[in-house]
Design a protein around this nucleic acid. Structure first.
Lengths: 129, 129
DNA sequence: ATAGGGTCTCCCCTAACTGGAAAGTCAAAT
DNA sequence: ATTTGACTTTCCAGTTAGGGGAGACCCTAT
């Protein structure tokens, strides 16, 4: 199938599918006139890539996961390690956001939000404070 | 003072200070030879910008906050609105990460992580599942 | 006079695409 | 046979918020 149909089937923008071909993530064959041709295997990889991206894996991680996906002799330990790295990253990020949210919530709650100029949010950011 | 001293005082990389000048966020005057000259007001803005960025505000939000910071007739409601938008964004992001973490944690926990190839993580990503 | 350190502009690079322009391909309708 | 229209191609530029480095310029100290 052509790129449009493959993109629809994988639920990805055509631009993204073309980009994945450019970077060698999912590489279709070409027709005589140069059109990209996607078979069932390539379609499966596109869907795999979309789902992995939705899990927050980077393109390079998706590349690793795809190569493990295709490797009949892979060990699940290799996959697990990549997923664990991602999980740690998520937890780091959540810890950051939790701290930010706490302070920002406090500031927003203590700001009166009226027509007057005094504001704890600005005071917290201003250097003279 | 020159850019190096200002950057040190504001605890920002020189490159960043120069970038802020380029985009008109904190604009110093120039010496006869073209060197950027930072006074106390500009230094205060650099510090303000660094703190606001650390709170996760985008450059454009920092621009808004700086203009409110400088406006003696501002209303705290305007500041509060920007902070609330940021807070909602943080909460959206945390909700996403919470869901991701839950599913990824489950997958990692159920993956044996040994030499064998079967792996629930890949099964979850593969389209045939 | 020169060595050094600081500064200047300019350009390319990052991630993961997105948007647009100009040109080529293909099937169907005229 | 031609012309439309949909689809595809490549290439270029832009997005965020800077980072890295080159080559040139400025200023001070020795």
């Amino acid at each position: 199938m052509q790129i449009g149909e493959a993109a629809k089937a994988a639920d990805l923008p055509v631009k993204t599918v073309r980009y994945y071909a450019d970077i060698g993530l999912v590489t279709p064959v070409r027709s005589a006139s140069g059109y990209r041709q996607y078979g069932p295997a390539e379609l499966a990889k596109l869907i795999f890539a979309r789902r992995a991206r939705a899990f927050g894996f980077s393109i390079e991680e998706v590349r690793e996961l795809l190569s493990l996906y295709e490797d009949r002799n892979r060990s699940s330990a290799d996959v697990k390690e990549i997923a664990q790295r991602r999980l740690e990253e998520i937890e780091r990020r959540m810890a950051e956001l939790t701290a930010l949210r706490a302070e920002l919530t406090h500031l927003v709650d203590t700001c009166r939000g009226d027509h007057r100029p005094d504001c704890p949010i600005l005071s917290r950011l201003a250097p003279e404070a």
